[in-house]
Every structure is written in structure tokens, then in C-alpha cells.
């Protein structure tokens, strides 16, 4: 009896709210994908600044900025960041919708995490690689671009993929600024009939399908790109 009631409500919520739920799935995927891609691109730049050895005065200032950025973003919840960004930009006259603010927030957030991931990736590449590149006359930038980063990114693939999966789940906090992603879409449907448990079970199953599918696809991508570069450490 209870079970038929439970699944009955689930069926009803799904059929009545399928459009909103599908839109929610789309928004969650968009937020996670854009956040990870934009975050990755900016993190490439930030990790370069952060790991640069021969930094001049400008380099040192940039390094200070990146360090501060990473510390603040990683030390505060994304929910709090979303509220601060959304309303402070509005006060400054930026008339943006919740989804755009959400995309901004998740990108800012992912940048900080991936900066640290890439820094670790760069540090895992033997110093001799950079040195050999410099020794044939490549500039520091070219050495990083053509020799160190390809290896660092390959070494970091698992963590970058993990960041995408974390984003699928964690973008649920963006409901606080009114983004209607999976969690929020399901919650709104459930609230109508006071059936929160049923609605959240639907959300949970959707998240599970998205994360399992993503991790399967990322595994295959990792295999295609190849196993992480293993190094013998330089001895001189």
C-alpha cells in the first residue's frame, strides 16, 4: 500500500513535471560542463602564474593575487559565493539572470580547485623536462606550453574529471539564487503535493545516473589519452 502510494506519487510528479525536470537536467549539465571547461582554461593560466620560478615584480603580484584567490574560494562555500556574486553584481547594475550568475559562480569556484590540481600536476613532472626544454632554447612559456603542460594535464586527468562530477552534485546549491537545476526542479514539483521524499528520490536517481555515466565516459577518455606519465627522477 505504502509502496504503491510512493511510486504512484513519483510517477505523477515525473509525468506532470517532466518538462521542468528535463530543463533542470539540462541546466545542471550546462553548469557543470561550462564551469569545468572555463575553470580549466583559467586554471591553466593561474597554475602557470603560481608555479613560475623566475617571477619579476609583476609576476610576484600576480602570484599573490592567485594565491589569495585560491585560498578565499576554496575556503568558503559555493552557496555563499553565489549569493555574494549574484546580489553584489546586481547592486553594481549588472542585470543578470540566475543561470548566468550560476555559470559565473561555478566557473570561479572550479578555477580555484583546478588551479591546485594543475599545480600538483606540474610539480609531478620531473624538473629535467623543463630544464631540457630550456636548454635547447625554448622560452619558459614555450617549455611549459609544449613540454610540461601536456604531461601535467595528462597526470591530472583523473582529478579534472572528478571536479566535473563534483560540479554535477554541488551546483545544487545554486538554488539559493534561483537557478532551477535538477534539485530545485524536483523540489518545486514535490512541494506542490508536500511529497518532498518522493521528489528527492527522483533527484537522487537523476544525479546518480548523471555521475555514473560521466565517470564511465571520463574513464574511457582517460584510457584514450593514455595512462599518466610515469617518471624516473633526475639524479643530477
Amino acid at each position: 500500500m505504502i509502496l504503491t502510494g510512493f511510486f504512484g506519487w513519483i510517477g505523477r510528479i515525473i509525468s506532470e513535471y517532466s518538462r521542468q525536470i528535463l530543463l533542470g537536467i539540462g541546466r545542471t549539465l550546462l553548469l557543470s560542463l561550462v564551469g569545468t571547461v572555463v575553470g580549466f582554461i583559467i586554471a591553466c593560466l593561474f597554475s602557470y602564474i603560481k608555479t613560475k620560478k623566475e617571477a619579476g615584480i609583476v609576476g610576484k603580484i600576480l602570484k599573490g593575487f592567485v594565491n589569495g584567490y585560491v585560498t578565499i574560494i576554496r575556503g568558503t562555500p559555493m552557496m555563499v559565493q553565489a549569493l555574494i556574486f549574484y546580489y553584489s553584481f546586481k547592486m553594481l547594475g549588472v542585470n543578470w539572470d540566475p543561470l548566468t550568475a550560476g555559470l559565473f559562480t561555478v566557473s570561479v569556484n572550479t578555477t580555484a580547485y583546478l588551479t591546485e590540481v594543475l599545480r600538483g600536476g606540474i610539480e609531478s613532472v620531473d624538473e629535467g623536462q623543463y630544464e631540457a626544454a630550456r636548454s635547447i632554447g625554448m622560452s619558459g612559456f614555450k617549455s611549459m606550453l609544449f613540454i610540461v603542460y601536456p604531461q601535467a594535464i595528462k597526470n591530472s586527468m583523473a582529478s579534472i574529471g572528478n571536479e566535473f562530477i563534483v560540479n554535477i552534485k554541488d551546483t545544487s546549491v545554486l538554488n539559493v539564487i534561483g537557478v532551477i537545476e535538477v534539485y530545485n526542479a524536483c523540489l518545486m514539483a514535490g512541494n506542490k503535493y508536500y511529497k518532498v521524499v518522493e521528489a528527492m528520490c527522483i533527484a537522487a536517481v537523476i544525479y546518480l545516473i548523471m555521475t555514473l555515466t560521466s565517470s564511465y565516459l571520463l574513464k574511457r577518455l582517460e584510457l584514450r589519452i593514455g595512462s599518466p606519465v610515469k617518471e624516473i627522477t633526475s639524479s643530477n
Partner: peptide
């Protein structure tokens, strides 16, 4: 040119 004790061939190439 420089030839290193530990070779330092580019592992990504």
C-alpha cells in the same frame, strides 16, 4: 647543446 646524465627526453613526444 646539453646532454644530461638523466637524458631528460620529452616524455610527451
Amino acid at each position: 647543446g646539453m646532454v644530461f646524465q638523466s637524458f631528460n627526453l620529452f616524455n610527451n613526444l
